[in-house]
């Protein structure tokens, strides 16, 4: 299997802290990777670096063997679903408009309908985005991420503010994209149970990478799970 993502010795230093310390891992094509870690573990920094939003790192990030610092086209292979879709609530754009913004080739207009149908939101296509519920919005942003047929889908903790029914639907969509369409998925989440259910690989991040491997291995190792839970719990208590 091809390497979809290859991260080598990734280090990000901010004036006060080291956000990521010598992180290296490989994601094979077709993998479903769940990235877990407490708040402040460096997940956002890792994502920002992979998405080209943070370029102040040392080490290398490669998508399909292409170094993202040297490539001008690597963004074409990735689709990104943000944590919270941020936009002005009265922004005059329909669901189709939003998906169209991401569309690379104007001639692929029919892809917009295709991807909206695939996510069961075709009937919303002429609705203004400010009128949608959290679950609907989430699917719109997945549709937007999928419209250029990316090989890798990157999702940033994307289930905040979505009800259970929509979360289940979202999970089944992800599963299908991964197993049927062969899209490599990288998904950061706080929800250990969901990661256990969906992902076949886990990366456990807390500034350094303290586990990366098959999710079965992680979840069958009580010591590891406990360690993670403790780290997460301390962080949790620290925050409250």
């Amino acid at each position: 299997m091809l390497n979809a993502v290859e991260i080598s010795n990734l280090t990000v230093k901010y004036p006060e802290v080291i956000a990521l310390d010598d992180v290296s891992f490989v994601v094979k094509q077709g993998d479903f990777l769940g990235i877990i870690g407490p708040n402040g573990a460096g997940k956002s920094t890792l994502f920002d670096s992979m998405l080209g939003l943070n370029t102040t790192y040392t080490g290398t990030i490669k998508f399909f063997d292409e170094d993202i610092k040297k490539s001008k086209t690597y963004h074409k292979s990735i689709g990104y679903v943000p944590q919270r879709p941020e936009f002005e609530n009265n922004f005059p754009a329909t669901v189709s408009d939003v998906v169209r913004m991401a569309l690379e080739k104007k001639s692929d207009e029919n892809k917009i309908d295709e991807v909206l149908q695939r996510l069961w939101i075709h009937e919303l296509r002429n609705r203004r985005i400010g009128e949608l519920s959290g679950g609907q919005l989430q699917r719109v942003f997945i549709a937007k991420a999928l419209v250029n047929d990316p090989k890798i889908l990157i999702l940033d903790e994307p289930i905040t503010g979505v009800d259970q029914q929509n979360i289940d639907l979202f999970f089944s969509i992800l599963k299908e994209l991964n197993s049927k369409n062969g899209i490599t998925i990288i998904w950061s989440s706080h929800d250990l149970d969901a990661v256990n259910k969906l992902a076949n690989h886990v990366a456990c991040l807390n500034r350094t990478l303290f586990f990366h491997g098959e999710s079965e291995k992680f979840f069958s190792d009580d010591e590891l799970v406990k360690q993670y839970s403790e780290a997460s719990m301390q962080e949790h208590m620290h925050h409250h």
Binding site: L51, G52, L53, K72, T73, H75, K76, I78, Y80, P82, P85, E86, F87, F91, A93, V98, R100, M101, A102, L103, K106
Partner: peptide, 18 residues
């Protein structure tokens, strides 16, 4: 048009899209 509209809608996402 697409580039101006997209970066008006959300700069970060537009950047990610290249």
């Amino acid at each position: 048009f697409r580039q101006i509209l997209y970066s008006t809608f959300n700069e970060k996402q537009a950047k990610v899209s290249g």
